[in-house]
Amino acid sequence: MTMFLSNLISGISLGSVYAIIALGYTMVYGIAKMLNFAHGDVIMVGAYICFCCLYNLGLPPVVGVLASMAVCTLLGILIERLAYKPLRQATSLAVLITAIGMSYFLQNLAQMIWGANPKSFQTVIPAGNLTLMGGELKISYVSMVTIAASVVVMVALSLFVGRSKMGRAMRCVSEDKGAAQLMGVNVDLTISVTFAIGSALAAIAGVLMCSAYPTLKPTTGAMPGIKAFTAAVFGGIGSIPGAMLGGILLGVIEILGRAYVSSELGDAFVFAVLILVLLIKPTGLLGKKIHEKV
């Protein structure tokens, strides 16, 4: 029982990281209607920036996190302006291939700058456990902070999208780009802000993920990125609560699958879930049904 609970908690904690990444995916997909394949690699860049701040410059953890958020925000805007904006009118195949190219570019650039050898990430959260149930159940501080951070991010993002003027513009653009433009919404600015927020969230996710799993290499972001996309699809792409729910469920499925079925097949479970969801409910758990128009 305590074993199950501790697995469940580490699943929720991993799922919270996926959820934060998935939020970035889902917002970009909802608004720009594109799959930002490079999103996973922004996570990796965020983690490296934080690593450099802590290890090379000796700055306090809070400054490291803020710096990595700032760099990733700029990076997100830059990627959107340089690579995706010229392709607004192109086919989705062209945009997807460009995004894959961007992902490769970031990975290889990181390899040139920081080398291919894995670096061991210094956790930004004090190590240690919270002991419950007479010492049987241990919850690490990292898990607790991760879960708390994801709840805060989720609430803040919901308020931002639901209440603020920019949030309303985002919802308009995601509904109908042309109509939004006619109503005086600055579409380019809205898309840039979306990329900025998504990338800042990716930086947070990168730092949290590397605090829990402390190996950092240029390909660190690739797999979590793909899994987070899976989570976004699972919850219904374009939906913010959906990304959160999908992320947490996926994390729990992965950890429980590894623990109780087969440790080698953890990733296979995640992808099998994706395929099943797309076949049974193509719009995801909380997604809206889209009608095909001729």
Partner: peptide, 28 residues
């Protein structure tokens, strides 16, 4: 059979998923 019921980005990501599943299963 499952993949071709989908289109566009979803199809791409599911083929990716299958590629990874194949590699994972081969490992066992």
């Amino acid at each position: 059979i499952p993949v071709l019921r989908l289109q566009g980005d979803y199809l791409a990501i599911v083929t990716l998923a299958f590629g990874e599943i194949i590699r994972n299963v081969l490992n066992c």
